[in-house]
């Protein structure tokens, strides 16, 4: 769900926020109308819509123009991405970008892809919760500031990205 939402926002924090909003809305709507047939799909749709709104609002705020959403990538769609049509895989490649420190890569993957709570990730690394929270925040900040791509690498880059260390 998070992976599908990041695709819309290209921003991990905004995606997490949208997913949380979707759960909140589920609590309200499901209590009133009953649980939908496919709760997972319902949540994902709501989260993505919410994310889209967040992105639109931010863009408008930034540019002060009613600009339409800029395409996430000006490139033609990469055929390799279609070969592996899994949003989670993109998220893994973003989390494990070599521009991030190895500990940050693993921690971010556990947190965002596996959905493990920050305190539990901290325990696994034998560090304090605050240290882990700071490490995760730093990594997410770098992804946003340096514009680390949210995509599966092209075929020629794959060997270097997969078989490392």
């Amino acid at each position: 769900m998070l992976a599908a939402t990041v695709r819309v926002t290209c921003d991990l924090d905004a995606a997490e926020e949208a997913v949380q909003d979707a759960y909140v809305q589920a609590l309200v709507t499901w209590a009133r109308d009953g649980v939908p047939a496919k709760p997972g799909a319902w949540l994902t749709t709501v989260a993505r819509r919410r994310a889209l709104n967040l992105v639109r609002r931010r863009r408008t705020l930034e540019t002060k123009l009613a600009l339409l959403i800029e395409p996430a990538d000006a490139d033609p769609p990469d055929p390799d991405v279609d070969a592996i049509p899994d949003d989670r895989l993109r998220l893994i490649f973003t989390c494990c970008h070599p521009a991030l420190a190895l500990e940050a890569q693993v921690a971010l993957t556990l947190r965002l892809v596996c959905g493990i709570a920050t305190p539990d990730v901290a325990h696994a690394f034998l560090v304090s919760e605050t240290t882990m929270a700071a490490r995760l925040t730093r990594a997410k900040k770098k992804i946003a500031a340096a514009r680390i791509r949210y995509a599966v690498p092209a075929a020629r880059e794959l060997p270097a990205r997969v078989e490392r260390r």
Partner: peptide, 8 residues
Amino acid sequence: ARDLDHAL
């Protein structure tokens, strides 16, 4: 550049 990979 488009993104970090492009810049690198």
